Structures are given as structure tokens and as C-alpha cells.
Simulated assay, not measured.
Amino acid sequence: MIRVLVVDDDALAVELHTAYVERVDGFVVVGQAGGARAALTALADPDRAIDLVLLDLTMPDGGGLDVVRRLRASGAGVDIIAVTAVRDSETVRAAVSAGVVHYLIKPFTFAAFRERLEAYRAYVDGLARAAGHTTQSEVDALLGALRAAPPRLPKGLAEETLAVVAERVRAAGSPLSSTDVAEAEGVSRVTARRYLEHLAEIGRVHREPRYGAPGRPEIVYAWAR
């Protein structure tokens, strides 16, 4: 069983991530921490073994990257998955350099979360099976296990169009309807709605009702910031 410490200064996020962990076979939450100092205290406790930390990177009492660096400097072998809304390339590069095994950007779906944990579990299981010296193919398999394959798009959706629609919503100053996106990108309203609904399902946009003319409200989509 892989023992997990959940670290986030948002109590609701701690509850959500804990519930997610408990839905994935082979993992158990053995601790929760609401900040950097609490995380370091929990990790220093000799009576509590921790294998994996789900670590937020922005907390009022210290940055998550500082926690990672202090752990590495102390020789701690615990693994880290960054779970954060920070998405700039400099931070991602620093996290990878510090030894973070996965980087999961908020908001995310349970499916995306489960993929990362299952990939990590495959990596741990592979290490446990390896004995003594490993071959190049075994090393490649171990490292490959950490790289969860990106979720496949539903049939009929294209990566390029999805990226264009996502950028249109992200850059908009206000929520957009499927009609707004269709007219801006030169696609049908049905097509625009399919892409918008997919973005909503994976947590990249939020659905909102927009009330205007009498009758049923129009559904609009706002970027999940």
C-alpha cells in the first residue's frame, strides 16, 4: 500500500484530494497538512512512514518547491506529485529539476488524477520487481511508467481545434456561448458545443447559465482560472 500525505492550504482541496486518493486501489492517505511547515513536520515524524506527497506549490507559509528542496537536501526519498494551479514553464522546469515525479495542474478531473496515481504505482511496482542490475529496456519501462498517456479525445474531436477553442474561451473577457465560439472560429454551433462540453468535462471551463430573452437560459462557458 502506498502511503500518501496530502498538502494544500485550501481545506476543501485537501478533502477532495483525500477522497480521490481513497478511490484509487493501492493508495491510502496517512496524513494531511495545511501548509509548508505542517508538511515538513509530518514528513519528519519518525512514527509515520510516507511514500508519496501530493503537494500544492503556493501556500502562505512557504512555497512547495522550498519543501521539495529541503526534503532532497535532507536525503529524504519520499516522492512528490505537484498538485497546483501554477502553470508557468519556469516553475514546471524547477519542479522537475527538484525531482517532482508528476505535475498535475488544477482544476482536473478524477480521471486525470487517477491516471497519474496509477502511473506512479506502476513505477513503484516495477522498482520492486527489479533486482540488482537492470537492463536498458527495464530502465526504459520504469521511466515510461511515470509518463501517463494523455487521455484520448472523444471520437470526432481534433487536438488542434480543441486548442483553438480553449484559447478563445481563455482569452475572452466574459463567458462565451457555443454560438459565440462558432461565429468566431467559423465552425457549426453543434461542433463548438462538443468542444466546449469536452473542456467542461475535463475541468478546463465552467458552465454557467446566461439569462437574456424570456425562456430557457443560454449555457455559456467561462475559463476555470
Rank of each mutant, 00 (worst) to 15 (best):
I2Q: 14
G77E: 15
R207N: 00
D180V: 02
E90M: 12
P175S: 00
R193Q: 13
V220I: 01
A171W: 13
G62E: 05
A172L: 10
V124H: 10
R3A: 12
A95L: 07
A184W: 02
P60C: 10
L157W: 00
P151Y: 06
L52E: 06
V7L: 06
A122L: 09
L16A: 10
V53T: 06
D51L: 05
A39M: 06
E118W: 03
A112L: 12
V30R: 06
P175F: 01
Y123I: 12
E197V: 14
A13N: 11
E159F: 11
E118Y: 01
F27P: 01
E160F: 11
G173C: 07
F113I: 00
Y20A: 01
E22K: 12
A141C: 04
V169Y: 01
A158V: 15
L16F: 07
G203S: 01
T179K: 13
L146R: 02
V164T: 14
M59C: 09
V139H: 11
H206D: 12
P214N: 04
V86R: 08
S97W: 09
V164E: 13
P151L: 10
S188P: 09
L176W: 02
E160A: 15
A149Q: 15
A148T: 00
A49C: 08
I105Q: 07
L196T: 02
A19Q: 09
A172R: 05
V6R: 00
L65M: 04
R69A: 13
G126E: 02
V187F: 14
I50W: 10
E115Q: 13
A13G: 07
A95M: 03
H102K: 14
G26A: 01
D9N: 05
I219P: 04
S97E: 15
E183S: 12
A33Y: 03
Y120I: 03
A33S: 02
H17C: 07
Q136F: 12
V181M: 01
R204I: 12
L71W: 04
R129K: 13
D125W: 09
R72D: 01
A85S: 08
A42G: 06
V29S: 01
T109L: 12
L143I: 12
A200F: 08
A49P: 07
R70G: 15
G132N: 08
I219W: 10
R210N: 03
E183C: 10
I105F: 06
G35A: 11
G215N: 00
S178H: 06
V78L: 05
D45C: 04
H206Q: 11
D9S: 08
R87L: 11
A184Y: 01
V30F: 07
V6T: 04
R114M: 05
E208L: 15
